[in-house]
Write a protein that binds this DNA or RNA. Structure first.
Length: 260
DNA sequence: TGCCAGGCTTCAC
DNA sequence: GTGAAGCATGGC
């Protein structure tokens, strides 16, 4: 059992932040977290500490990187302009939300399915595809060989061929979690997939590759930029971590609308 | 019941 | 390059 104090971590908000779709709640303060073929049981014992049921080695090798625990999120928050009342409020509301570093394939598949979709339905489709809440994430080999009709039956609708195509290219191009690539090249590469556009490509860069300059613009974020930034976010002030701010704003906006 | 959803492709202009 | 239509289907 791991017991650790973490200065900036809120499991409940992370689970509701729309970056992962397979976390399950257990009781009031517990979560089962499937990732990288393993399942972690994690409990938030108070606002600054957690318990997790894994070995110290697995904690260090798998879960600390996945939860991005070596990154100083307080410093990101402290850098927010005092003049930016909206972003300050989003930081307060999103306090404890870290940007998960997920497996590349899981991120690709999850966010291909997410397009023009709602979060409960994304979760349901992934549950069906993976075969259970704690099952390993469906692998690209399986998706590549599954019939399009079967994928449609999992609730993917018109996204079924997009996912199948992505699985085949992932395999053909020999992708893996070790992929090392810059943001510009990654955006161009993933946008070249049939069914992946600018938004999903940025989700892959941010959550799957840990490129924190990626800034996924979905309908919520576009609305925020319209209403609070005259349509243009000040990326220049937040070089290297604008994607983290995007995560807090996304969560905050949905919280205000009663959706988080 | 109708609108919406962590958008994208296609086609007209 | 920009804008609108069409897409599947459950959630609210």
């Amino acid at each position: 059992m791991i017991r650790e104090e973490i200065p900036f971590f809120n499991a409940e908000k992370i689970a509701r932040s729309g970056q992962c779709f397979r976390w399950q709640t257990v009781g009031d303060d517990g979560y089962t977290i499937p990732a990288f073929g393993k399942v972690l049981r994690l409990r938030q014992t108070n606002p600054w500490s957690i318990e997790a049921d894994c070995t110290p080695n697995e904690w260090k090798q798998v879960w600390r990187p996945y939860l991005d625990l070596d990154c100083d999120y307080e410093a990101y928050g402290a850098s927010i302009s005092q003049q930016d009342a909206y972003l300050q409020a989003a930081f307060q509301a999103g306090w404890g939300i870290r940007v998960l570093h997920q497996s590349l394939w899981e991120t690709m598949a999850s966010f291909i399915i997410s397009q023009n979709n709602n979060i409960p339905r994304i979760q349901k489709s992934l549950l069906t595809l993976c075969g259970g809440p704690e099952a390993a994430f469906v692998c690209p080999e399986t998706v590549a060989e599954t019939s399009e009709d079967t994928l449609r039956a999992a609730g993917l609708g018109y996204r079924a061929p997009y996912l199948q195509n992505a699985a085949r290219r992932y395999l053909q191009d020999g992708l893996s979690d070790d992929l090392s690539i810059g943001l510009g090249e990654a955006r161009r590469y993933f946008s070249s997939y049939f069914g992946i556009g600018p938004k999903v490509a940025d989700c892959i860069c941010l959550y799957g590759l840990g490129l924190k300059d990626a800034f996924p613009m979905d309908v919520w974020v576009k609305r925020i930029l319209r209403n609070h930034y005259q349509g243009v976010f000040p990326f220049g002030q937040y070089e290297g971590y604008a994607g983290v701010l995007q995560q807090w704003m996304f969560y905050y906006e949905r919280l205000l609308e009663g959706r988080a």
